[in-house]
Amino acid sequence: MTFLKVIRWMVWKDLISEVRSRETISSMFFFALIVILVFSFSFSMDQQAARELIAGIIWVAFVFTGIIGLGRSFSVELQNDCLEFLQMSPASKGAMYLGKVMANLIFMLTVEIILFPMFVIFFNLDVIEEIHILLLIFFLATFGLSAVGTLFSALTVQIRAREVMLPILLLPLVVPVMIAAVEATKGALNGDPLAGYWQWLELLAIFNVVFTVVSFWMFEFVMDS
């Protein structure tokens, strides 16, 4: 199988199983909904406070739901020893990695795009003009999360206490993604000129390139049987 074909089949297989079971996206979605609810209870916000805090709240909710999705991404492969078949398969491990990154990216972005209107409604946001920039920020930050998270999902699924270890390993590493995403989102929501937060988008792009390359290389060692 060629490299691109492997990627396409990995994405396809994940999407098909998700469409049939609807487990990952629905669990991510309801978890995020609960997070939003908890946040709106814990901070009683007026318009001004909402402006300051909303970017952080959005990304905390997105990152935690993302971790749920990432954790499931490989733990579903444990059923029927699918993980071992992936490890033994002669297909390129790098292509598998890219396929999984794509699949996770699609899941996470889907949930984010469903959730974002709820934030808009619940917290009275004003976004119609910057929506394309926001989508770009979501895409870049989620890609970064998925690039590192997929590798660590494949790693932690093979050890004890995997539910604990995935966030412990992942969260310190995605600190730059969190900072950049929050700052850029805040800039976009406040309607600042693009030049004011363009550097954060650049940082996200650099993070994505670096970690896709490094994780692509490292994935072979994680999937070594």
């Binding site: 390993l169 730059p176 993070f207 670096v210 970690f211």
Partner: peptide, 20 residues
């Protein structure tokens, strides 16, 4: 693997925190 990823991450963390 974790050590290598973490080492690559450190300069990016430093720059992002400094800008922030």
């Amino acid at each position: 693997v974790v050590a290598i990823i973490g080492f690559v991450d450190l300069p990016i963390v430093h720059f992002s925190v400094e800008w922030w």
